[in-house]
Amino acid sequence: MALLELRNVSKIYHLGGEEIRALDDVSLDIGAGEFVSIIGPSGSGKSTLMHILGCLDTPSHGTVTLDGIQVEKASASELARVRNRKIGFVFQFFNLLPKLNVVQNVELPMIYAGVSGSQRREQALQALEMVELGNRLKNRPSQLSGGQQQRVAIARALVNNPRIIFADEPTGNLDTHTGEVILALFRRLSQEGRTVILVTHNPEIAAVTPRRIEIRNGRIAEKVDARLAGLDRLAASATPAAAVAGA
């Protein structure tokens, strides 16, 4: 069974009586330890897909299973719990809290996980060592470079030891060189066995991942990932497990 399973997922917005299908009947499996990029132009529905995969949003139709949890039925507080324990987010604009210093920012997810103070500090230090920022603990985010801020964000994403890391345009706000350093970091995380999902509009960045999922007009463009075509066909015959095994 895959870590993430989407079955016939649609997301429909109603804008002034007009129905907008941001996602249209998408089925998708992502296995544990995969390094995947979701690629597509803006407005293609890739952000919506990421929100649903990241448990920030729930689908209008279809089912989402994350590590055995039925996400589409979960309440807001259950979703918050899943985000806290299972998922780490890295955003384009870093999204660090400006009033907190580096360690406090990294500790933030553990506060909501109910980890004790001393253990929080210890785990935060470990995570910061991993991104080589063990020497900037007391700095505010505004005192760091973009690349450093993004590494703090990655440390924050890692600190609760989640099963999946989501990165939404993680290099979009960085220069090419720094961006490569960050991408190398994600590659390393993938090699260490974590599931990493990169969301980007840039094919060059998507090229670093072994598997690419292209979204167009709310649907998965079949030509990019041959495996998904087979998956769709098998999903229709209601044996998704066989599909994954076959792939």
Binding site: A80, R83, L108, Y112, A113
Partner: peptide, 13 residues
């Protein structure tokens, strides 16, 4: 508030 919620703060928190 969005960031706190994204990293796992529930509505109650």
């Amino acid at each position: 508030i969005g960031i706190r919620k994204a990293v796992g703060a529930g509505d109650g928190s």
